[in-house]
C-alpha cells in the first residue's frame, strides 16, 4: 500500500492547491464580511437577504473549489505536470481529497459557526437552529457528492450535472423539512429543540457524508494509473 507513504509530497500538493485558490478564498472572505455587515443592519429584509446570500456563498465556494481544483486540473492539462512529480496516483488523489476538504470545510465551519452565533446573539428565534444545521449539513453532503464525482471522473459534465441535481434537491429538502411537524412546530421556540426526527436526519446526513467520502477514498485507492 502506498497510502500516506508520501506524506511530505501530499502536504506540498495541498499547499500548492491552497496557493492556487487563495485569491478566490480571499474574495469569498471579503464577501462573507460584507454579508455579515448586511445582516448586521438589522432590518428583517437585509437579515433574510444576508442569510440567503450566506447559503449561496456556501454553495458557490464548494462548486468553485471542486471545479477549480479538480476538474480544471485535467481540463487545463496541469495534471500531466503533477504526474511528473514524485507522487503516485494514490498520493495525488489523497492530496486532492485533503485539499478540497480542508479548503471547503474551514469556510463551511466558519460560516455555520457564524450563523449560529448570529442566531444565538440576535433576536432570531433559537428554534431555527436545527433547521439551519440540517440545511448546512445537506449542503456539505451535496458538496461531498460532487467532489466525489469530480475526483472519480474528472469530468466537468458529470460534476456540473451532480451540482445541478443536488442544488435542486436542496430546495426540495428545505420544503420537505418545513412541512415536517417535528421541524416547523419548533421553529419559533426560544431554544433549539432537537427531537428524534431532527436528530435522525442529522445522523443520516453526517453518516451519508462520511459514507460518500469513504467510498471515494476506497475507489481512488484502487486506481493504478493516472489516466
Amino acid at each position: 500500500m502506498h497510502t500516506f507513504s508520501n506524506s511530505q509530497m501530499i502536504k506540498l500538493l495541498i499547499l500548492k492547491d491552497w496557493q492556487l485558490v487563495k485569491k478566490s478564498l480571499a474574495a469569498y472572505l471579503a464577501g462573507g464580511v460584507l454579508i455579515i455587515g448586511l445582516m448586521g443592519m438589522a432590518t428583517p429584509l437585509l437579515f433574510n437577504t444576508g442569510a440567503i446570500l450566506m447559503i449561496t456563498l456556501m454553495i458557490v465556494i464548494g462548486a468553485r473549489s471542486a471545479i477549480e481544483l479538480v476538474v480544471n486540473e485535467k481540463k487545463d492539462q496541469t495534471l500531466t505536470f503533477m504526474m511528473s512529480l514524485p507522487v503516485t496516483a494514490q498520493d495525488y488523489a489523497w492530496a486532492k481529497l485533503g485539499a478540497n476538504l480542508l479548503l471547503y470545510l474551514v469556510p463551511w465551519l466558519l460560516l455555520v459557526a457564524g450563523m449560529l452565533l448570529v442566531i444565538v446573539s440576535s433576536p432570531v428565534y433559537n428554534g431555527v437552529i436545527p433547521l439551519v444545521v440540517l440545511v448546512s449539513v445537506f449542503i456539505l453532503l451535496s458538496y461531498c457528492c460532487y467532489l466525489a464525482t469530480a475526483l472519480l471522473t474528472y469530468s466537468e459534465g458529470y460534476t456540473t450535472a451532480v451540482m445541478i441535481v443536488t442544488n435542486l434537491l436542496l430546495n426540495g429538502f428545505i420544503i420537505w423539512l418545513l412541512r415536517m411537524p417535528a421541524i416547523h412546530l419548533t421553529l419559533e421556540a426560544p431554544t433549539a429543540s432537537w427531537n428524534s426526527t431532527s436528530l435522525l436526519l442529522l445522523a443520516a446526513g453526517v453518516g451519508l457524508t462520511v459514507l460518500v467520502l469513504l467510498t471515494t477514498a476506497v475507489l481512488q485507492n484502487r486506481k493504478t494509473s493516472f489516466l
Binding site: I36, G37, L38, L117, V118, S122
Partner: peptide, 20 residues
C-alpha cells in the same frame, strides 16, 4: 447617510457595514 449624526458607536455583536 446610513446612520444618525454624529456617528453612533457600532457596538452591536455584528460588525456594522457603515463602520467597516
Amino acid at each position: 447617510s446610513l446612520v444618525p449624526a454624529p456617528v453612533p458607536a457600532p457596538e452591536w455583536i455584528f460588525p456594522a457595514l457603515w463602520a467597516l
